[in-house]
Design a protein around this nucleic acid. Sequence first.
RNA 1: GGGGCUGUGGGGUAGCUUGGUUAUCCUUCCUGGUUAGGGACCAGGAGACCCAGGUUCAAAUCCUGGCAGCCUCACCA
Length: 475
Amino acid sequence: MSKEGLGLTAKKKNLQDWYPEVVLKSDMADYSAVKGCMVIKPNAYYVWQEIQNYFNERLMNLNVRNAYFPLFIPESFFKKEAQHAQGFKPEVAWIANDENSERLAIRPTSETIIYDSYSRWIRTYRDLPFRLNQWANIIRWESKATRLFLRTREFLWQEGHCVYETREECDKETLTFLQEYEKLCRELLAIPVLKGYKSENEKFAGALYTLSIEAIMPDGRSLQCGTSHNLGQEFAKSFGIEFLGKDEKKHHPWQNSWGISTRLIGAMIMLHGDDKGIILPPKVAYNKVVIIPILFEDSKRDVINQAKKIQTLLKDFNPILDLDGEHSPGWKFNNYELKGIPLRLEIGPKDLKAKSAVLVRRDNGKKISVKLKDLKKQIRLILNGIQDNLYEKASRLMKSSVVEARNLNEFEKAISNRKIAKIFWCDSVTCEKDLKERLNTIKSILLPLEQGKVSGKCVICNNEAKVMAYFGKPY
RNA sequence: GGGGCUGUGGGGUAGCUUGGUUAUCCUUCCUGGUUAGGGACCAGGAGACCCAGGUUCAAAUCCUGGCAGCCUCACCA
């Protein structure tokens, strides 16, 4: 029998059903009247704001300024970079209001409109490096297969666009931004990731190469969480971006672009949640604590007074104080567990006498009694502990999700066991395409940054192996 | 873009095959009372057939179209 808010599907049993259910019931998001477009509700939007706060500070350290470019991109801009245009063709939404002027794309990414401006702004080597970022919404007109946070027609992201004199600088910072993403995922969202290069098939349309971070979900599928592209000089050539060098000659600069999106919120929900609901990493929880008074007739007033005092004492953690008299404490426990509040504080007559309160962790359910004088310090410690524990738990999951496969047999076994297979690979486009024809949802996830020693045959096609690669099922 | 499934109060559902009284049950919500450390109990009350056409004496039920959700293939963050 299902009870309101808790008819949750077991996570392990059926992740595909659990995920949308828990997103809706935990009050993170809602569907809207428009297909593939979602409402991001306050607790989820707060996570996005924390991502912005964190990353804006990092950007300042890296000398990247924020700016904003238009939502609309003239069709002719798109066509200037042929590979780029081809790559995004299926998912661009168009505006064609005015029959007399060219139609406008609603940005699926902003390279073209931004680089048109860059071509007028960049003149000499003294203008370089040039680094901008924008926080924006993006439209990709997915025909089907939309999923809350993970794939929607409109989503929020940041896109950084930098210009450099030399390939070396560009390479270096392309990697730097990827490392920043890894750090953000680890420190803020407690998400461990794999880092590496995308294969030729999977790289960004128009890029020289693409670096990406990938989080492994509980069902063994890989979720791309952030990308950093070295765009080489091709966009510069297409958009006429040139600078006068110290050598008094004109050169095309090197460029990169890099982005993370609200998809990260989906990764966080899917990775940390359990059968009771979502679990918010303390650093991105709007309310880090919920105070639940245990009320009896004779001690009601004293307990409520104490609960209010504790609320004031703990204001740094923005605690919810639930004084609702209709619901039982047990009902409240379940409700806040569903919504993922990291820490619950229970205060009743027994605690009042002992000058203490009971703390219960959302991540492991452990319950301890803490003296009021130690409360703030203890909560700080416990919240840090929860943050660390979530990351460690997810790291163990990631480790157990990746298996080495030394031959085709082991490879296919790994895939059918829903694992990510680490293999020797020939790194050829045709090999990956052939594989896709046989196992249609399987592709290369990435080629790890640290390659180690590669010797032997490609596990898939038996040609000479050139790289180490992860293969699996992506989201 | 192709194929399949689905849409009933705030949430979960029965009813649809074979059209026919006042649309079932659980939960939520409101009122009053009794309660009280892991989803309390009693009494009363509120609340729904996705939208637009069509067939019919009569449509939640059948037909057509639209919208939305899910699964799957293709594509993609």
